[in-house]
Design a protein around this nucleic acid. Structure first.
Lengths: 195, 195
DNA sequence: CGACTGACAGATTTCAATATCTGTCAGTCG
DNA sequence: CGACTGACAGATATTGAAATCTGTCAGTCG
């Protein structure tokens, strides 16, 4: 009936489409199978459970976000403080844009991220590493006060969570958000700098 | 049948008790009236709606929290940085303790606070004012770099939201929370200080 | 053989009937 | 008169029977 082989990627894409259309509570494995024109048994050949399938979706989304951010934040000629500011503001702007452009999809993303907290922690780990690298450079060049880069990186992300943690998406509609974010970033950068 | 007059305070107390016992979804005006041995019509004599009644409860809770914090953070002999550190850590510790001691009640509190965001914003306004006062003192004494105290105060609260905003209550169980909070406070205080 | 189907058991969700609740107000009672 | 009641309409929540879903697996098909 179908010439093609049916691989995991194709199933993940179909799942993503169903999640987009029906949201997380109403997307069933049966829906995904129907979308692909196969029986749901075939889906279970590639994914051990519905949870595993959803995990593959959130993993793909986070991988994509990671790549976008890595591409946007590669200005190694600027001083560390400016590189960090760019990284943070890019991070905020990217999320804010996604949350505003398609709030329902963003809410779906949020549900999946909460469901699979292991995958999300991995993503947070990547973010910490990005910040840590810049902080390390800053400490090495004498721009930043000498302290444990890992601790500082965690502190930077914790201090800015209101602006990047999806939990706070509802607050991002407020017009003050941008100014508030800029004030926090300025305060943090002052905290990092050598005295 | 009853000698007493039935005033608003009594009704609020009974409501608090019902919320404690049954949680926010299951406390009805009828429950409150039963608890008091009156008809629910009598409750509506004192409160225009169920929402108004719940608002009175959250208002009382926040007023109490305000008083507790104001009492705990009155060390005017210390330098501003230490006063601010004390204010923040007291604020965190108080909330963490409440969230841990009685998670269900804390969740109830959270629901009511979200329902009546106007009242909550008022509370946040008080917190900003507390921080602003210390920051102003610090700027006046030369301990903190001269910048707009209102902006700095907002930045300080925004940067620490992960440690005081009830939205993050679930994360407060993590053993790293205390160290993370200390690192963020240290970073912020360094950001405030004169260079 | 290996990709796929579809029937099945048990878990979860949906839906409509039923019960309960909110908010009002004419009426009771001291 | 003024505090309180309880019946009422419309809105919301609960319940349990029926429908759908998840995950398995013996069996089909090329």
């Amino acid at each position: 009936m179908r010439g093609e082989p049916l691989d995991a990627e194709t199933i993940v894409s179909a799942t993503e489409e169903m999640l987009r259309r029906h949201g997380p509570e109403k997307t069933t494995v049966l829906d995904v199978a129907r979308q692909l024109g196969v029986s749901h048994g075939s889906v279970y050949r590639h994914f051990a459970s519905k949870a595993a399938l959803r995990e593959a979706v959130i993993r793909r989304w986070l991988d994509q976000a990671r790549d976008e951010l890595a591409a946007a934040a590669h200005n190694s000629e600027l001083p560390p403080a400016e590189r960090l500011r760019t990284l943070l503001t890019t991070m905020f702007a990217t999320k804010w844009a996604k949350a505003r452009e398609d709030p329902e999809l963003f809410a779906t993303f949020r549900v999946l991220a909460a469901e699979h907290s292991t995958v999300s922690s991995g993503h947070v780990g990547f973010l910490i590493a990005q910040v840590r690298d810049i902080v390390s450079d800053g400490v090495a060049s004498g721009d930043f006060a000498a302290r444990e880069p890992e601790v500082l990186a965690r502190a930077v992300l914790n201090a800015t969570s209101r602006f990047h943690d999806p939990t706070h998406a509802a607050e991002w509609h407020s017009p003050e958000t941008e100014a508030d974010a800029a004030a926090v970033v300025a305060l943090i950068l002052d905290g990092l700098r050598t005295r």
